[in-house]
Amino acid sequence: MAVHFHEEDLPADVLAPGPIAVDTETMGLVTHRDRLCVVQISDGNGDEHLVRFANGSSYDAPNLKAVLADPARLKLYHYARFDLAAIEYYLGVVAAPVFCTKIASKLTRTYTDRHGLKNLVSELLGEEMSKQQQSSDWGADQLTDAQREYAASDVRFLHRMREILITRLEREGRLEIAQACFDFLPTRAKLDMAGWIDKDIFSHE
Score class of each variant (00 low, 15 high):
T31W: 04
F202N: 12
R52F: 10
L29S: 11
Q179A: 12
G126W: 05
G56D: 03
D23F: 07
T167V: 13
L74D: 01
H49R: 11
E127T: 10
D137C: 08
V121T: 09
D137A: 14
L120Y: 06
D70E: 07
A152W: 12
S57T: 07
P186N: 10
R114W: 00
F157Q: 02
N45A: 13
G46F: 00
Q142E: 04
G126A: 03
C181F: 07
K199A: 02
C37L: 11
R160F: 00
A21K: 05
Q179G: 03
I164F: 02
K65P: 11
D34V: 09
R81A: 02
D70C: 10
F202E: 03
H6Q: 01
E25Q: 15
Y111E: 05
D154M: 11
L64T: 06
I164T: 14
P186I: 09
S153M: 15
T26Y: 08
Q133E: 12
A95F: 01
N119H: 08
D23C: 04
P71Y: 02
L117A: 10
F202Q: 06
A95D: 01
A96C: 12
D137R: 13
A66Q: 14
A95L: 06
Q134I: 02
E128N: 13
V39G: 02
K199I: 04
Y59M: 08
P17W: 06
A2I: 09
A66Y: 05
G56M: 07
Y77W: 03
T31Q: 08
H115D: 09
L117K: 08
Q179C: 05
S42D: 02
P97S: 07
K106E: 13
Q133F: 04
P97A: 09
T144M: 11
W138T: 03
G116Y: 00
E170S: 10
L84M: 07
R171K: 14
E149L: 15
A104W: 00
D154H: 10
A12W: 07
G195K: 14
A151I: 00
E48V: 14
E205R: 13
R174E: 00
L84V: 13
C100A: 08
L74Q: 06
V3H: 01
T112R: 04
Q133N: 01
P62M: 07
H6F: 04
A54Y: 04
A72G: 03
G92W: 03
E25V: 08
T187E: 15
G173P: 12
S42C: 08
L158F: 08
H32L: 11
V30K: 15
Q134F: 03
A72K: 14
A151V: 00
V38I: 13
A104T: 09
G195W: 11
S203I: 03
A180N: 05
I20E: 01
T110S: 13
M129A: 00
T167C: 08
G56R: 09
A140L: 10
R160D: 00
F182C: 06
A80T: 05
L10H: 06
D137V: 14
F99K: 06
E163F: 01
G195C: 13
V67I: 15
K131M: 11
V51W: 08
L125R: 13
R81D: 00
T187S: 14
A2H: 05
A72L: 09
P62C: 03
T101G: 07
V67P: 04
D154S: 14
